Simulated assay, not measured.
Amino acid sequence: MGLLDDLKGKAQKVIGGNEQAIKNGIVKAGDFVDSKTGGKHADKIDAAQRGASDFVDKANDRPNTPPVAQQNPVAGEPPVPGEPRQPGL
């Protein structure tokens, strides 16, 4: 699940400080889709809007852990604080 954790970490960075603008965009996007479908899927769209808004609300509550590759740079060697991992070493 390293990829999902990495994506969540990136989302947290993007969301930071922009919560209200993102939530406004979620509402506008959901309303747009609802208008194009004639309200046919309004319940599903509303659920998606709530889920996305909840994610934005909770994004800053999650600890930002580095991806697995950065936690253990080379098998058998402890990570060196402040030193980036170099591929192939």
Rank of each mutant, 00 (worst) to 15 (best):
10 K>G: 03
75 A>L: 14
17 G>D: 08
51 G>H: 00
35 S>L: 07
21 A>T: 13
52 A>I: 10
20 Q>N: 12
87 P>N: 06
12 Q>R: 15
83 E>P: 00
78 P>Q: 12
56 V>C: 05
75 A>Q: 13
81 P>I: 09
71 Q>P: 00
25 G>D: 03
12 Q>A: 12
35 S>K: 13
73 P>K: 01
13 K>G: 09
75 A>F: 14
83 E>M: 11
20 Q>E: 15
11 A>Q: 09
65 T>S: 10
57 D>G: 04
51 G>M: 01
15 I>Y: 06
51 G>D: 11
37 T>A: 06
77 E>A: 11
68 V>W: 07
81 P>D: 01
75 A>C: 01
41 H>D: 14
50 R>N: 04
52 A>N: 00
3 L>D: 12
36 K>E: 13
9 G>E: 03
83 E>S: 11
4 L>R: 10
76 G>S: 09
12 Q>N: 06
55 F>Q: 04
24 N>Y: 05
10 K>W: 11
57 D>L: 03
66 P>E: 13
44 K>T: 06
81 P>V: 09
37 T>L: 14
48 A>V: 08
1 M>T: 13
78 P>R: 11
48 A>Q: 02
26 I>K: 01
21 A>G: 00
62 R>N: 11
86 Q>G: 00
33 V>F: 13
6 D>P: 01
1 M>N: 08
40 K>S: 09
11 A>D: 05
80 V>I: 14
37 T>N: 14
40 K>I: 04
68 V>T: 05
52 A>G: 03
84 P>R: 10
66 P>T: 08
88 G>P: 04
21 A>Q: 15
7 L>E: 08
82 G>N: 15
22 I>D: 01
87 P>Q: 09
44 K>H: 09
18 N>K: 15
78 P>I: 08
83 E>G: 00
11 A>I: 10
73 P>M: 08
4 L>C: 06
40 K>P: 00
27 V>Q: 13
39 G>R: 05
42 A>E: 11
85 R>M: 04
78 P>Y: 06
18 N>D: 10
25 G>L: 06
16 G>D: 12
8 K>P: 02
23 K>W: 03
20 Q>A: 12
89 L>Q: 13
14 V>I: 15
33 V>I: 15
7 L>G: 04
77 E>D: 09
30 G>V: 03
61 D>N: 14
40 K>F: 07
59 A>Q: 08
22 I>A: 03
2 G>M: 02
14 V>E: 10
51 G>E: 08
77 E>I: 05
30 G>D: 01
80 V>T: 15
54 D>E: 13
79 P>F: 14
72 N>V: 11
47 A>K: 15
67 P>M: 02
82 G>C: 07
86 Q>W: 06
44 K>I: 05
